[in-house]
């Protein structure tokens, strides 16, 4: 018999009896990524065989070993999370391809496990992760970042909060030098290097998201053909109208103006920034365009009462 002095990991020691210890050990086990064949990894984080770790706290039964029983939960954890990830980021999956997207999702969820009670928040830190670990999307970091931003913006537009929309009447008589306008919290303004609105519309996405349930998930790996969006500088507002998510293309000056408003600039300051981009344009035309833009945005209910 070989006796080692190797100390047990913290979770392992606690697992001998107490509830917190068992839960910590089980969570650490099932949150470890699956192998390529969707099996449990052979070794635990402390180097011990996973079989030994599982046997420590899970009973075998007439058909399954401790490891096999634990593996059911390991699979379930990843199948559920990957399913939710693909649901929120179909565009990312379409251009990265299934295998690369799964590797990215697994790495992301390993580094940033869910810290929210709802799967809705699963992709919240994906942009940060892609910036921190670009190797998962190489050589397309810029495209991947654009895609993550627009797809997360869709999550926000789908069920983000709204505030009472401003009525045109309430703005009458207010000097633009002092007027500050706030954009609805569900709107995201994006400056992208790719025409991702066209690309995502072609993916024919559903208007209703699949939702949480307490049922076991069976993973469905799609064999989608990879496709690539067109490179084109694009300005987009991701918003919703009558609870349907839309992309609205903006011109550069519209984008600058709206972005300035979101940064707390007054209407006059925001207009000045936007007009600087159109130095050759006649003042009358600028004014007419501005009136038309604001009329559209007000109609869409984009401006809301401030805090």
């Amino acid at each position: 018999m070989v006796i080692t002095n190797r100390p047990l990991p913290k979770e392992s020691k606690r697992a001998q009896g107490d509830l917190t210890g068992i839960q910590a050990l089980m969570a650490a086990s099932i949150m470890r990524p699956l192998t390529d064949g969707d099996s449990m990894q052979e070794f635990f984080s402390d180097g011990r065989p996973m079989q030994e770790v599982a046997a420590e706290f899970i009973k075998p039964n007439r058909f399954l070993s401790s490891l096999e029983r634990l593996e059911l939960y390991n699979r379930q954890y990843w199948f559920r999370l990957l399913d939710a990830f693909y649901e929120d980021f179909p565009g990312l999956m379409a251009f990265l391809g299934d295998a690369k997207c799964e590797a990215l999702a697994t790495a992301y969820l390993t580094r940033y496990p869910s810290t929210s009670f709802t799967l809705r928040d699963l992709g919240r830190k994906l942009e940060k992760f892609v910036l921190e670990e670009p190797e998962w999307v190489a050589p397309d970091q810029k495209l991947a970042l654009d895609m993550v931003r627009i797809e997360w913006a869709e999550v926000v537009a789908f069920d983000g909060p709204s505030k009472p929309a401003l009525e045109a009447q309430s703005l009458v008589g207010i000097d633009p030098v002092h007027l500050k306008l706030e954009l609805q919290p569900y709107i995201t303004l994006l400056e992208l290097d790719y025409a991702l609105d066209d690309f995502l519309l072609k993916l024919n996405k559903k208007s209703d998201k699949t939702v949480e349930s307490n049922a076991v998930i069976e993973i469905k790996r799609k064999k989608g053909r990879r496709s690539r969006p067109k490179k084109q500088r694009t300005y987009i507002a991701v918003h919703r109208l009558e609870n349907i998510v839309y992309y609205k293309r903006l011109t550069c000056d519209q984008f600058v103006l709206l972005k300035a408003l979101t940064k707390g600039k007054t209407l006059a300051e925001a207009c000045t920034q936007a007009f600087e981009l159109q130095s050759g344009v006649d003042a009358g035309e600028l004014s007419a365009n501005l009136t038309s833009d604001f009329s559209t945005w007000m109609e869409l209910g984009w401006f809301c009462e401030g805090a």
């Binding site: 107490d18 509830l19 917190t20 068992i22 839960q23 910590a24 089980m26 969570a27 099932i30 949150m31 939960y73 379930q76 954890y77 559920r80 999370l81 939710a84 496990p113 869910s114 810290t115 929210s116 009670f117 799967l119 949480e212 307490n214």
Partner: peptide, 20 residues
């Protein structure tokens, strides 16, 4: 149970049936 140290598994995990 389903969460540990603020990390959520989003699964319905079995509880050890103990007095604690």
């Amino acid at each position: 149970w389903g969460s540990v140290d603020g990390k959520f598994t989003h699964d319905l995990l079995p509880i050890p049936y103990t007095v604690e």
